[in-house]
């Protein structure tokens, strides 16, 4: 479980996050949603520690990340997997080498077991056939799957996904969403996903936190989102005709 307590973050005297508190539970897909520029990526990067928060606490299963020393941070990060918006695979390595990299860097297990684990992860995301290819030689959807394989290779306790569906077609997006959800449940991972894709929200949103202009504006589940008494959230959810129709159907 990850707890965010009263987190505030500013850049050049502009406050991007205002006193945000939230709890992200294990074994569930926790979604942070909001319009572009609302501060959701800053919130995620603050939770992971790419940005240092100005005020507040971030607790990983009760351990305060904001007061950890360098070694404790390095140790904690081995429990963290991350799927970046642009996949962030290493260009100079093949898919297999990308997935093996965290093991080479941190695993205490014998090398013979690395291959077994890499093969398992590639197989889990359906990329065994692309192991020897470079990231530039595979599609965007395959890159995301390779990045998921790399993120889970060290069997993380926490998984972060920043816009996992950006640039993907609806069918591939669905595949990625389902894969993330399955991995979360199978391994009881605390998963936090940044998205503004309402299909994802409806598909895998166990818990949803809505960020608006740097404030936590709403919190709930995908079932309660249609009844939310929040104008800003409604403006986001019902921006598309499709969801307006879904709401009509829901209200009937």
């Amino acid at each position: 479980m990850i707890e965010v307590r009263n987190v505030t973050k500013s850049f050049n005297n502009v406050t991007v996050l205002h006193n945000i508190s939230a709890t992200f539970e294990a074994g569930k897909t926790n979604l942070i949603i909001g319009q572009s520029g609302s501060g959701k990526t800053v919130l995620m990067k603050s939770i992971i520690g790419i940005h240092r928060v100005d005020e507040g606490q971030i607790l990983y299963n009760g351990r305060d990340f904001t007061s950890m020393n360098r070694k404790e941070v390095v140790d904690l990060r081995q429990e963290v997997g991350m799927l970046f918006q642009g996949s962030a695979l290493f260009d100079s390595m093949t898919v297999e080498e990308n997935v093996r990299f965290p093991l080479e860097m941190f695993s205490q297990k014998p090398q013979e077991q690395w291959k077994e684990r890499v093969d398992f992860c590639l197989n889990r995301v359906g990329l065994s056939h692309a192991a020897k290819l470079f990231p530039s030689e595979i599609s965007g959807g395959m890159q995301k799957r390779a990045a998921i394989a790399r993120a889970i290779v060290l069997e993380p306790t926490y998984l972060f996904c920043d816009e996992p569906n950006s640039g993907l077609d609806p069918k591939t997006s669905l595949t990625i969403d389902q894969l993330i959800r399955e991995i979360t449940v199978e391994n009881n991972i605390t998963t936090i996903i940044n998205t503004h894709d309402m299909n994802s929200v409806m598909e895998i949103g166990d818990k949803i936190i809505f960020i608006h202009k740097g404030h936590k504006s709403w919190e709930g589940s995908k079932e309660s989102i249609f009844d939310a008494d929040n104008e800003d959230l409604n403006a986001l959810v019902f921006a598309s005709k499709l969801f307006q129709n879904v709401k009509k159907y829901h209200n009937r």
Binding site: I48, I50, V73, V74, D75, L76, R77, Q78, V80, M82, F84, Q85, G86, A88, L89, F90, D91, F101, P102, M105, F106, F160
Partner: peptide, 11 residues
């Protein structure tokens, strides 16, 4: 392309 961030996140 966030590859350096990816390295940092891994520790």
């Amino acid at each position: 392309t966030e590859q350096i961030d990816a390295l940092k996140i891994m520790g």
